[in-house]
Design a protein around this nucleic acid. Structure first.
Length: 281
DNA sequence: ATGCCATACGTTGTATGA
C-alpha cells in the first residue's frame, strides 16, 4: 500500500497536477492539505473518475484538508471531533483595513480552523494535518501553533493507541532537525525550527510515532517545500516540513519512502512536493 | 526590513504563506 501526503496549495488550482500525479504514482491513499475549498466545492467527481473516494474538511478560502482513497474511507473524523469550524472570512474592504482586521484570517484558537481529518483506509488509520504556520516567534499565532500541536497530542492519547496501525501525514510546518533546512544559520530566530516547535513534534514521537522518511533517508538536504520566490527551488533552498509519522506496526511494513521533487517542477506547481511511503502487505 | 511568487476573493488591493 502506498500512502502519500501533499500540500497542494489550492486543490482547485492544482487539480490537473493532482490528477496527473495520481495517474503517475498511483497512491492508494493521498492526504492533502491547503485545499482552500469549502466542502460543497470539493471536486468529488474528478477523484471518483480516477478511482478514489474523497473525504474533505474545509472552511472556504483558507486551510482545508482532505483524504483521497481507493482502499476505502471509514470512520471519518474532522477537527479532532470537536465540531464544526468557522467559515473563512471574506476579503477585507481594501480601504477599511483596521488594526482589528489585520490578521483576522488566521485564528489564535487551536480548534476553529480546518486542519485535521482522519479516516481508516485499507486497515490503517490515516490522519491528514495542516499545522498552523505560526508566523513569528512570540506572537499569538505562534502560541496557537503550539496549542494546536497539544490538541493533536491529546487527541492521539484519548482516541488512538500506539499499537494500532496509524499514519499521520501532512504539512507539520516544523523542520524537526537542523538537517531539515538548507542553512540553519538562516533560520535562527525563525518559526519552524524553534525548540518549542521541535518539542511539540517530539511529543508525537514520544507517544509512539516515527518519521517514516528518515527510516530510509538519513541524509541531509532533503526538502519538501521551496519558496516560490527567488528561484529557491532551483537553488536547492528548501525545508523538510511535510512528514509521514507512523506507528511501529506501520514502520515495520515500510519498504520505501520518497519525496517526489519532480512534482515541484513544471507548470503551476504547488510550493510543496508530495511525500510517500510504501508498505508491504 | 522587504520583495522576490502564488493562492483566494474580487477588482485593480489585501491577507496569507513559511
Amino acid at each position: 500500500m502506498r500512502i502519500a501526503t501533499w500540500n497542494v496549495n489550492s486543490l482547485k488550482a492544482r487539480l490537473p497536477r493532482v490528477e496527473e500525479w495520481l495517474a503517475q504514482r498511483a497512491p492508494d491513499v493521498l492526504l492533502m492539505q491547503e485545499t482552500k475549498l469549502a466542502d460543497e466545492a470539493a471536486p468529488e467527481m474528478p477523484f471518483r473518475m480516477a478511482g478514489y473516494e474523497l473525504a474533505h474538511h474545509g472552511e472556504g478560502r483558507w486551510n482545508g484538508v482532505a483524504i483521497a482513497s481507493r482502499v476505502g474511507i471509514a470512520d471519518v473524523v474532522t477537527n479532532f471531533g470537536d465540531g464544526p469550524v468557522r467559515r473563512s472570512p471574506g476579503p477585507e474592504p481594501s480601504t477599511a483595513a483596521t488594526a482589528e482586521a489585520v490578521g483576522a484570517g488566521a485564528s489564535e484558537a487551536p480548534g476553529d480552523e480546518a486542519r485535521m481529518i482522519s479516516a481508516v483506509c485499507g486497515g490503517v488509520r490515516v490522519v491528514s494535518i495542516y499545522a498552523p504556520n505560526g508566523r513569528a516567534l512570540d506572537t499569538p499565532f505562534y502560541r496557537a501553533k503550539l496549542a494546536w500541536f497539544d490538541r493533536l497530542a491529546r487527541w492521539l492519547r484519548e482516541t488512538c493507541h500506539p499499537a494500532e496501525s496509524l499514519a499521520i501525514g501532512g504539512d507539520f510546518n516544523v523542520a524537526p532537525e537542523d538537517e531539515d533546512v538548507y542553512d540553519p544559520r538562516e533560520f535562527v530566530g525563525s518559526t519552524h525550527v524553534s525548540e518549542a516547535e521541535r518539542s511539540a513534534v517530539g511529543a508525537l514521537r514520544d507517544w509512539g510515532l516515527v518519521d517514516a522518511y528518515r527510516l530510509h533517508h538519513p541524509e541531509s538536504g532533503k526538502f519538501s517545500w521551496w519558496d516560490y520566490r527567488a528561484g529557491n527551488f532551483h537553488k536547492g533552498l528548501g525545508m523538510r516540513i511535510d512528514h509521514l509519522y507512523v506507528t511501529r506496526s506501520v514502520a515495520e511494513r515500510c519498504t520505501a519512502a520518497e519525496i517526489d521533487r519532480d512534482a515541484r517542477k513544471g507548470q503551476f506547481p504547488s510550493d510543496h512536493a508530495p511525500v510517500y511511503i510504501d508498505l508491504a502487505d
